[in-house]
Nucleic acid binder design. Structure first.
Lengths: 340, 340
DNA sequence: GCCAGGTTTGGCAACGTTAACAACTCGGCT
DNA sequence: AGCCGAGTTGTTAACGTTGCCAAACCTGGC
């Protein structure tokens, strides 16, 4: 019978055309919501589409239109709360704009694993790329190995000014945390940092230092951690024994959590003896012992905004400065006035 | 000059062919590592590829070969540790097998948002689909709306036996947790559950109940939570006031964390007065106060295995039963002998 | 020097869609 | 009646790749 779908195979545009008694071109017009199709014709086509359960082949469409319908994302640490939230924001915003999202997670920061991970992104399958990397080296490896002309946006770390970058305003977040502690009467604030090669860790160290300097306070030695609760715990064992430590700013909540535990073991009371502030506002932050005062960056907003910038790039516009995403300070019970 | 790349556009196979002085067909053979290409010819082609930075167009390739190079994943709660780890496992395994991964996260469990989220997966862009859903309803909505003939694998929740399903052995994990507590001398174990409409929550409730029954112990009323630390906290306030509660099994670590905090507030000591066991082994579990005894499911393995099963399906094999992924019990300091 | 059999290479068509253009329809106007 | 133009529809070719088949090229044996 005319218009029957070919055996076993999914329907294609020609099948729909035959069933509706029009040309493939007209079906294409209906699919793409172009004007100048008689209402009656449109109805017939739509009905045929429904009957055959026709779904346009995006690969064929991408081929003629010379454009992909997907955004590529290269992300590290995608299991962590922050990056995972950013990824979710990217996914939602991309889909709203009609793009799919392909996510790759390289094994390491080195050039080899990053190029390896990117291999399918570079094969004309993505319209543009967003990197979500905490390290400048990784971002450089990724962005300098992209095919020429492929639009890219960096989240957090970028090799230089040539790539539009969406960032959390680390400096502002840290300033809020440190000033909060100073206002509570602490004479200075110690810092447990993330790994120094990470951009965000570095940015937080610098913001912490400069806030203290501007307030005319001494800047203690940085205690280096690696984002993990374990490293926060080790830092806590060290700081808890030390004289005169009354306020600690940890570069993320996981380390703050380790700190809390170390202080608890040592009999150092939080917040009576020492105040602690974290960074991230992980979902459990409010239920730690004690509930953690922390800086909340809006990772979802970072994701949304990076898509927005990429779309502008795809549209041929050029993008100058992207405003920073400003975090907020969430005050809970882990901070209190300095002991005297 | 011969072999020059056409202005501005990325090189295509014809450009490479011209530069190497061979036909496009031969370039294709080299790209796909087919036999019967003279070594000298292969070298010339590879050199041309390098010179032009040629990358094959996967959309064109997919079109002729009638197959996609991507695996579609529909996931819920992708920010949580468990699903995020599964996603990572899927991504790595897929890439190792030469597939990209497209992830979509619907807004809700209802049919509308799921179909909506799936729309691009259904347009011939994916070779197969993996669902990562904690609810049977969601899995049903997804899997019954897939185009006919598209291979699919379910993680955790599936509508029925028709779709191969990769699961954590919830029952075994729960049994380990509950028996651990019983062996410590507790007369029974209370349970703070996840939301009942979630398959995994339901499975844990049932396993908890049957383990107690098999041991001939009374089964207390389930305290219902919703996975969040807040709900664990509320449950803790309730259980902490109750007489005779000496052991609690929380259906996930976040709720266990809330429990710990509530008990702390109430002056109930863990593990001296009450033992607590969680489920998930989130990265911070070992640094809570006290470090949490918990069940560790290998989410990454679940992801890897689901890809493996999907690949078998794509290969035309049919898959009978997929063995459960068995979790392990991680003993830490939140459990101890029952008080007398 | 010739032929059989294998290896290497090229030509053509097809995958499913859309862009560009051509052609047709229809009502209104000269 | 003939013509115009807006609105609607169809035709042709192209996107970049690979499957299929045929052609050209070797190699060694007689």
């Amino acid at each position: 019978m005319a218009g029957a779908r070919r055996e076993g195979r999914p329907a294609v545009i020609g099948d729909v055309a035959r069933l509706a008694g029009v040309s493939p071109q007209t079906v294409s017009r209906v699919m793409n919501e172009r004007p100048n199709v008689r209402e009656e014709t449109r109805r017939r086509v739509l009905e045929a589409i429904r009957q055959l359960d026709y779904r346009p082949n995006l690969m064929a469409r991408g081929l003629v239109r010379r454009q992909a319908h997907t955004i590529g994302v290269i992300s590290f640490d995608s299991v962590l709360f922050g990056p995972a939230s950013t990824l979710l924001g990217i996914g939602r915003a991309a889909r709203a704009a009609g793009y799919g999202v392909t996510i790759v997670t390289p094994e390491g920061f080195d050039r080899g694993s990053i190029i390896d991970a990117m291999s399918d992104l570079t094969s004309h399958t993505v319209a543009g790329v967003i990197t979500v990397f905490p390290s400048q080296q990784a971002a450089t490896n990724a962005l300098f190995n992209l095919p020429a002309g492929l639009p890219a946006v960096a989240v957090e770390a970028a090799p230089d000014e040539s790539v539009p970058t969406v960032r959390i305003d680390q400096a502002e977040g840290v300033r809020m945390a440190v000033e909060h502690l100073l206002r509570l009467g602490h004479s200075t604030v110690w810092h447990v940092s993330g790994p120094r090669e990470r951009m965000d860790a570095q940015a937080r160290i610098e913001a912490w230092r400069s806030t203290l300097e501007q307030a005319g306070r001494p800047t203690p030695q940085v205690v280096a951690g690696d984002w993990s609760a374990e490293s926060g715990y080790q830092a806590g064992l060290e700081l808890g024994e030390r004289q005169g430590v009354t306020a600690v700013f940890a570069a993320n909540d996981h380390m703050a959590l380790g700190l809390l535990r170390a202080f608890h073991e040592l009999g150092v009371r939080v917040p009576e003896d020492v105040s602690v502030v974290g960074f991230d506002d992980i979902p459990e932050a409010g239920y730690l012992i004690p509930p953690l005062t922390t800086v909340r960056p809006d990772h979802g907003e970072v994701g949304r905004r990076s898509v927005e910038v990429l779309l502008r790039l795809l549209d041929g516009q050029d993008v100058e400065d992207v405003p920073y995403v400003v975090p907020t300070l969430v005050r809970r019970a882990s901070t209190a006035a300095a002991p005297n």
